[in-house]
Design a protein around this nucleic acid. Structure first.
Lengths: 245, 245
DNA sequence: TGACATAGCATGTATATACATGTTTCATTC
DNA sequence: GAATGAAACATGTATATACATGCTATGTCA
């Protein structure tokens, strides 16, 4: 009678599955109103706190929309703006198997007053901005060009780091764990300098990942140029909802 | 004494902020062990259920790692594989202001036995696969080429839809709300056909978003070719953690 | 010394209760 | 009829309590 599955999963998970099953089957369509918490308490035979937890988690996962005093509704599908998980290319190279070798070369490293591009990213009031150009290799073939602008005032001992170490990005993340991130993805034909550094034809396509992190003041700006073509792609599987792996 | 802020936010939010502040300040470093729930109950003066909820949410948000019987630890930063929100280009056009006009042209629409590319995406046992080519316009300029392979057996009344309607993708999402999604992003030079359809130079860069959805059997495969260059980019802000906007 | 049982402690779940907060509905009153 | 107020109902939060589950350390017994 309970309408809940009899697996070994916890009760609130069964309630979540019950709700998702009703959404998936089309019984509860988009923007439809769900039974109230007390209704579900009566029909499912669990406590209100358990129902509430299930509905709250489904709300934070994007499946439901709740309005205090009004009710609970089926949320519109959230694939409109899609979450994509893009793997760090360093990890991609590292995970591709033991027979590949990853390498890094530091091309340029200047601590200089902010040029136009730096000023454009709100570094204005920061005097020294560390600018470095790094090329990543796999099996002696350059696969990625990284252009980093880092605000050393916000990253302790950043200037003491070994810039050819592969752990630099991880160091940035570890020192500023609560930063916000903005990404832009675009595709551009390689310019002369990029083509030279990546050893690729000059008008071949580059996938550009622009990554800006800040905590209030800007921490770092990183432009990543990857020669994709047939050799590389960035991707992920995205499981929209209920079973966070 | 309570070490919690005195704002108007709920108690569990204050506990979360307290924990995040200790992580952000470096007091609790990566992999460090947090005080136990009972310790926090004593030092913060709230109930264990409240502490538990705060820690549970921080865990699901990726900030903490909890092991039953052992303790709670600061999770390594999750920016390793970065979440990126890529906006649907249809929404981008629609949201760009009233003076722009969006349009769609259906170029081809064949229901045919699966060719090689279709077979490669596990359509094998499905006989009829709907294949359509759609070009999206903004102000009479083509900006996106969409190549769709849809399994009509899994999408009710799909073949009855008006394919020049902008709502087709939304219809797909509404009919199969609990699908999983896989994305691949790459940058490719435009081939002859793509260049012709998008009215762009033949070797200019295309940003290609490959999107495959399935529920078990494959539902649809959509390849999106966007002429980016200086005109378009896909991007998002990603707030890693605590204040889901 | 080694194996095993156990106590202790950590997190995980479920419930009952109480109150807070926001919305809708409906009846009373002017 | 319109405005006001109260009741009913919805979700939101906080707490106490109880028990379940999993790991660790300790101490006893062979």
């Amino acid at each position: 009678m309970s309408a809940l599955s009899d697996s070994a999963s916890p009760l609130y998970e069964k309630v979540k599955d019950f709700v998702l099953a009703n959404i998936g089957s089309g019984k509860w369509v988009q923007n439809a109103r769900l039974p109230s918490e007390n209704d579900l308490v009566n029909s499912l035979g669990v406590s209100r706190m358990t129902v509430h937890r299930a509905l709250r988690e489904l709300t934070s996962e994007g499946h439901l929309r709740r309005v205090q005093g009004v009710g609970t509704f089926v949320a519109p599908p959230k694939a409109q703006s899609t979450l994509i998980e893009v793997s760090n290319i360093i990890n991609e190279i590292r995970d591709r198997g033991g027979k590949h070798r990853a390498g890094v070369i530091l091309l340029e490293r200047i601590e200089h007053p902010a040029p136009a591009i730096v000023r454009a990213f709100e570094f204005d009031r920061v005097k020294p901005v560390d600018h470095s150009l790094v090329v990543h290799f796999e099996n002696d073939i350059p696969v990625q060009l990284e252009e980093r602008y880092v605000n050393p005032a916000l990253v302790p001992h950043y200037l003491d780091q070994d810039f050819t170490s592969i752990a630099t990005l991880e160091y940035l993340q570890r020192c500023t764990p609560l930063t916000e991130v903005e990404h832009l993805i675009s595709a551009l034909p390689a310019g002369p300098e990029q083509a030279r550094l990546l050893q690729m034809p000059e008008r071949d396509s580059c996938l550009v990942l622009h990554r800006k992190t800040w905590t209030g003041a800007t921490v770092a700006t990183v432009n990543t140029f990857t020669h994709v073509g047939s050799r590389y792609s960035l991707g992920s599987r995205y499981r929209p909802t209920h079973k966070p792996a």
